[in-house]
Design a protein around this nucleic acid. Sequence first.
DNA 1: TTATGGATTAGCT
DNA 2: GCTAATCCATAAA
Length: 214
Amino acid sequence: MNLSQLPILADIRPLNREFFARDSRRVARALLGKVLVREEPVRLTARIVEVEAYLGEEDPAAHAASGRTARNAVLFGPPGHAYVYFIYGNHYCLNVSCEREGKAGGVLFRALEPISGIEEMAQARGIKIRGPKDLPKLTSGPGRLSEAFGITRARDNGCDLAAAASSLWIGDDGYGSHRVRVTPRIGITKAIDQPLRYLLAGNRFVSGRNTSGS
DNA sequence: TTATGGATTAGCT
DNA sequence: GCTAATCCATAAA
């Protein structure tokens, strides 16, 4: 069965390095509608529908806030690379590094809309999909999408997301990301007022409560 | 060396 | 709505 609401996409092209070499707020906005691709062991694809921007050392909520450490080194490295961290003893979260090498910045992936490889994602999540209603359980939330894509720090931290030769990368299939909404970030305790969460308005795969609206 | 708490989730009330 | 689960990076001592 094909539970995806979306057509199977033929042509997905990787993003340029320059795409990521700018302010994380602009990258976050531009990533909406793009496609996250996992190549191994089978191809999984899902559309990016919710992200959050994290700035550099001036952003108290960012992992880069207190300078470069072994854990967050990727955020200070070249743009377009995966920063994966482990949180709450259970979950991995995926970010992509932004800004030029030497300057910290990143975008957290908060929710995806599955396109292909749905059976495999369900298996990775350890759940049964009985119908379209269950699909958001696969990839709505940063921990969930990481599990669905088999993303771990050991496997993916530092991976080049701008290269289609990577096991994990980001591509553009020509989808237009209209109706973007901006809200405060979720789940943090510092700088909670800043509007740095970007989502596709009305998309049912967006995480959190207040997903309605236009 | 020890302590603390987090960019979350699932399950229960 | 509330909270336990569960690891590790970082801070404090």
